[in-house]
Design a protein around this nucleic acid. Structure first.
Length: 437
DNA sequence: TCTGGGGTCCTAGGACCC
DNA sequence: TCTGGGGTCCTAGGACCC
């Protein structure tokens, strides 16, 4: 038995925990650069604000209904996510944290008659300890647990917990479940299914394996098997190092000059190097890409990327920055307005298994000590306390827009909430006051 | 005016080998 | 006229996820 826990309207819910004024109101949270809508409270969904739409397209709805608009505050959401996960782990330790707001649980160690009670206990505890409401789907496979979760979220009759107990119940549900809502079936596969007259999840499960494989590859077949109750996607409980790491941003405004572009790329490269060191990895390849604004048909377009393979795999900020700048120089062109850039490190291996080069002229021992010291300082004293000079100039042209950022309530001392008790409302004062009167 | 960021996995096809 | 058969490895690009 597998459970999928998913936080309801996660980013919007996080904002509400510390700002009660937002409760019972339509709230939306925007993507980086205040570009698109990435989270909506139920009230905002009801107003017809779609997921992923650019804000400027729903400006009317926002103004007419007084929708509360917030920039995304990842420091807050990341910390709240950890609290949710830690709370769940107090009841079920066998857990895979699947995304910032989702976790799969292995319930095979629990007795069947305890499952429903356990699920409600998890909901209650997360709500009480963290202030976030969650939905829980329970089923024999990950894909079915996802589906159950979907139902738990959509139908209030489930009271937040949907358990697909047996095959009959599962089939009954699948017969009305749109095939496109199934986890792993995206836009392309949905269109193809529909063109074959397959509209429900059940219809898909009735097709032959060979047919499914032929049309939807092994990936599609796995999804169908999971719908049939045969587990093909295992719970991943151990830490797995990433195979590629990307840091990229759209800019607050477009950039033409090389220097500010290089400043941005330097920062992205430093972040990639930090993420590498965090997971004790080194990378062999560095990709740098730059894009002009693809929505501006009136401007000349230039999008290009280039991969550089380093002589020796590395996680040194200095080294990765040097190669990234070299890469940028090779693709940068004058007279274009760039909107976005990014750095990807790939060909990732454990730092303990580095293949050295006979002609290596870098003192790796020294670099490694330097990076450890920098990481320590930056962790203790704040991000970029020690930085590479190219990371910061007086110009900050490439920075993001985050106009509606909420405080980092849980991760910055300066942003801690102050609670003030009014004289009028405390019970103690009320008694004192009446005594005086 | 304004349009996110970060991942994984799979396949097809080319390059190369004998 | 007619041009083998069987592999491996790598990469770009597509599809999917949150």
């Amino acid at each position: 038995m597998i459970a999928l826990i998913d936080c309801n309207n996660f980013y919007a819910s996080c904002e509400r925990v510390f700002n009660p004024r937002l409760r019972h109101k339509a709230v939306i949270v925007l993507s980086n650069n205040d570009g698109c809508v990435v989270a909506r409270s139920n009230e905002a969904k009801a107003l017809g604000i779609g997921m992923g739409v650019p804000v400027f397209k729903v400006k009317d709805i926002i103004e007419r209904n007084g929708v509360e608009v917030l920039s995304s505050n990842y420091a807050l959401y990341g910390d709240m996510s950890q609290r949710v996960m830690q709370t769940i782990a107090t009841l079920v330790p066998d857990m895979e944290v699947y995304s910032i707001d989702e976790a799969f649980l292995d319930l095979s160690n629990f007795k069947l008659h305890d499952v429903e009670k356990l699920a409600h206990e998890i909901r209650q505890r997360v709500w009480q300890w963290v202030g976030i409401s969650i939905s829980i789907g329970i089923a024999p496979t990950k894909t079915l647990a996802k589906l159950a979760n979907h139902l738990a979220k959509k139908n209030t009759k489930y009271n937040g917990v949907c358990w697909l107990k047996d095959r009959n119940k599962i089939d009954e549900i699948l017969q009305t479940f749109p095939v496109g809502e199934v986890w792993g079936i995206g836009r392309q596969m949905t269109a193809k299914c529909n063109s074959f007259g397959i509209n429900t999840a059940y219809q898909l499960t009735q097709k032959g394996d060979a047919w499914i494989r032929g049309n939807f590859t092994i990936v599609g077949l796995r999804t169908v098997q999971e719908l049939r109750g045969i587990a093909c996607i295992e719970l991943q409980q151990n830490f797995v190092a990433k195979q590629s790491i990307c840091t990229s941003r759209s800019f607050g405004k477009m950039i033409s000059d090389f220097d500010p572009l290089a400043e941005a790329v330097t920062n992205f490269a430093v972040r990639c190097a930090e993420k590498l060191r965090q997971q004790k990895s080194v990378a062999n390849n560095i990709t740098v890409f730059i894009n002009t604004n693809r929505f501006r048909n009136d401007l000349p377009q230039h999008s290009q990327s280039v991969v550089i393979t380093m002589p020796v795999a590395s996680s040194s900020s200095q080294e990765i920055v040097n190669y990234a700048i070299k890469a940028l120089k090779s693709i940068y062109k004058n007279n274009y307005q760039y909107k976005k850039a990014g750095v990807i490190v790939s060909g990732i291996v454990e730092e303990s298994s580095v293949q050295t080069s006979l002609f290596d002229d870098v003192d790796r021992e020294k670099q490694s000590k330097l990076m450890k010291t920098i990481d320590l300082l930056n962790h203790k004293m704040g991000k970029d306390t020690v930085y590479i000079s190219r990371q910061k100039s007086d110009k900050i042209e490439w920075k993001n827009r985050r106009d509606k950022l909420s405080p980092s309530y849980t991760t910055r001392w300066d942003d801690l909430i102050e609670a003030k008790a009014s004289e009028e409302i405390t019970p103690y004062n009320r008694i004192k006051k009446s005594e005086n009167d």
